[in-house]
């Protein structure tokens, strides 16, 4: 049970860290000063979620501490969604990804706030508030981009098409034992809520929902895109160059 629970925590922690890291790459390069501050906030929320989840996983025996889990595991040990490791692309890709993910995580954390595991429930209760804000921020931007200029519409639609094949992975089954024990929600059960959010926002944004298509998979099993290795190489470079170093 403990391994199963750690696996769940690591999946969700890796998701949060990988997306938080990607968002942090915008620092100093955002399209406006206001958005600079907002993107940093989003990244900070996600890195904060990752830390809480890693710390709990470490407590359950998954590793020494949050940093050993973040900095000393290789890409084959990371179990994040492929969607979240893709490069930032332009602002439309960044926003569309955040939207598609937050539209899932908002109901996920809300459900997980009722988890039988009190530690996870506490993390989820905080994360849900953050995810609700992430969803609102991303939806507002997606609507602005979709219903803004011709160029922004084209870019937003292209972003959705690019990311769509990576959305299926969010709904892959969670650990059945944990679901049965009411530790976490079954992702498939959140699909309807996700569909409603996505359809409503896309309609307001005058964007079309991409056609259903073959879905990418593999992140949960540690089979990643070519991008994660590069991301981790950068992220872990200092920590790995100084084994045992305290920072």
């Amino acid at each position: 049970m403990s391994d199963r629970f750690s696996g769940l925590l690591l999946r969700r922690a890796d998701d949060a860290l990988v997306l938080g890291h990607r968002l942090s790459e915008w620092t100093g390069h955002a399209p406006s000063l206001e958005e600079e501050l907002a993107l940093a906030n989003l990244a900070l929320d996600l890195i904060g979620q990752a830390r809480a989840l890693y710390a709990l996983a470490a407590e359950k025996g998954a590793g020494e501490d949050e940093d050993s889990l973040a900095y000393l595991r290789g890409d084959r040990e990371y179990t994040n969604l492929l969607l979240l490791e893709l490069p930032n692309g332009d602002f439309a890709v960044t926003i569309a990804r955040l939207f598609l993910y937050a539209a899932f995580m908002d109901p996920f954390w809300r459900a997980a706030a009722g988890s039988r595991d009190r530690d996870l429930a506490a993390i989820a209760a905080k994360a849900e508030k953050e995810a609700a804000y992430h969803l609102r921020h991303a939806a507002e931007w997606l609507i602005r981009l979709g219903d803004g200029t011709e160029e922004s519409h084209r870019r937003a639609q292209a972003a959705l098409e690019r990311l769509w094949p990576y959305t299926g992975e969010m709904f892959e089954p969670e650990d059945e034992v944990l679901v049965a024990a009411d530790v976490c929600p079954e992702p498939a059960g959140l699909r309807e809520a996700w569909n409603r959010t996505v359809d409503a926002v896309l309609a307001e944004a005058t964007l079309s929902r991409p056609a259903e298509c073959w879905m990418q998979s593999g992140g949960r099993a540690g089979r990643h895109t070519e991008h994660l290795g590069h991301m981790l190489a950068v992220m872990q470079s200092v920590a790995r160059a100084h084994p045992g170093g305290k920072w």
Binding site: E25, M235, A239, W247
Partner: peptide
Amino acid sequence: ITRAPSLR
């Protein structure tokens, strides 16, 4: 930021 050696 992308290379900071600990999450803290």
